[in-house]
Design a protein around this nucleic acid. Structure first.
Lengths: 229, 229
DNA sequence: AAAATAAGTGTTAAAACAACATTTATTAAT
DNA sequence: ATTAATAAATGTTGTTTTAACACTTATTTT
């Protein structure tokens, strides 16, 4: 044994994923009902153990893909939770990740035999272990992140209306925004493409569709926008 | 073995601490020269392994205390680093923490037989493993954090001049600030107590000393200030 | 008395922000 | 064909915040 590397100190390392989605109305989180012990039958975040040949990012992406069938989505490390007794089975440290996914895409790619369900943030049940705490932290991070970095677009379909975008921001920030001010601020970022098409589903007049302009966004080298909403 | 808890997947979990200090001129980081393998003789962050009965926060505080002799300092979890081969000896995931300490206090409490040295951020050598990456991330986080939450005071002596505070912010943010605008903004936060005493060391006229007003600060319930500097 | 040093202090123009109401395009109903 | 209903689209104004900018003051040393 090399000094310091004491096998007795080895621990399990898990990842747990907070998966956010948006249904044009509420911000939602995807939870699973556990079909195994411990805490069988209770609701939980989707998680898994770190394997020998993968990074935490890999593990989080794998876990997420297993549940949702979705690849290549926004995924960000959140925080490592390490209370000694947080997992009753064995000492396990869990690194939480949060993901934001387009619910439509998820529904296409649906691979779940799992007992998974979307919950509005206001209706989240008691979760196992410290998962409620993880979720709280993820919400706070998402709010802050959204104000700096327009990642919110990941939650919308490819084409969306200004109204949808505003609803999304309202759901994330949990406050109402002024329509005109919102549009002006979004436009000032200059990262949307206005299409000729209209969405006719929400009104007789129809409303123009927009797309996120990835190129423009990338071109703004420093990539932080500090939207004060 | 309970399903999923496969002992083969256990790993070492380390903490590494980025320790920031300020010497009235530059922002500095405390590094140690390793007196053990691997990478003996090379510079590194101060680190250690997570023990069976402590949280990561505990481990980081312990590691920090062992090096500096200082207790009760600002310490914040930064990020978990998990590249498969980041540690050549054994699979080790490291959770980095950053700390900010008052160099004077450190010098009082000096407990180091360790080969430790303060480096200006511009003069940091190549570090072992992924420690340079950790440091970079810590600097970025410190910058952002300082703009939101006036933690910078932790880096100053109890009594300080406006000039010192400005130099500190300039060092953290790595840009020059306008003296008058800076004072106005700091004053608008209303969390400093102006003392009757003057510091006479820096000029013939002397400059008033200030203290951080912890009570005022705590009283501002939401505790984020968004200082745009 | 003069020189040197750093501290202390206010104004202004520009930009960002928050609050606010009316008009427009279209479909459905009469 | 007119009217009613619905949601979309659109600009202005007063207020606040920010950035840029230079001179005076207090004290010590020469």
């Amino acid at each position: 044994m090399i000094a310091g590397y004491n096998p007795d100190d080895k621990v399990f390392l898990a990842v747990d994923c907070i998966i956010f989605g948006f249904d044009n109305e509420d911000l939602k989180v995807l939870l699973i009902q556990r079909d195994f012990e411990p805490e069988q039958g209770n609701w939980s975040l989707m998680g898994g153990f770190l394997k020998r040949n993968e990074t935490l990012d890999d593990a989080a992406a794998r876990v997420l893909h297993r549940l949702t069938g979705v690849h290549d989505i926004y995924l960000e490390q959140l925080y490592a939770f390490s209370e000694v007794d947080r997992d009753p089975v064995a000492r396990t440290i869990s690194t939480s990740y949060y993901a934001i996914i387009n619910i439509e895409k998820y529904n296409e790619a649906i691979s779940d035999k799992k007992n998974a369900k979307w919950f509005s943030l206001t209706e989240v049940p008691d979760l196992i272990f410290d998962h409620n705490e993880m979720l709280d932290k993820a919400i706070k991070r998402l709010r802050r992140r959204t104000s700096i970095n327009p990642i919110g677009f990941e939650l919308l379909p490819e084409k969306f209306t200004m109204r949808q975008l505003q609803k999304l921001y309202e759901a994330i920030l949990d406050k109402e925004l002024d329509k005109r001010n919102f549009i002006n601020k979004i436009n000032s970022m200059d990262i949307l493409i206005k299409l000729k098409e209209k969405d006719m589903s929400s009104s007789t007049k129809g409303s123009f569709l927009f797309m996120f302009d990835q190129e423009q966004y990338d071109a703004k080298q420093d990539n932080h926008f500090y939207l004060k909403l």
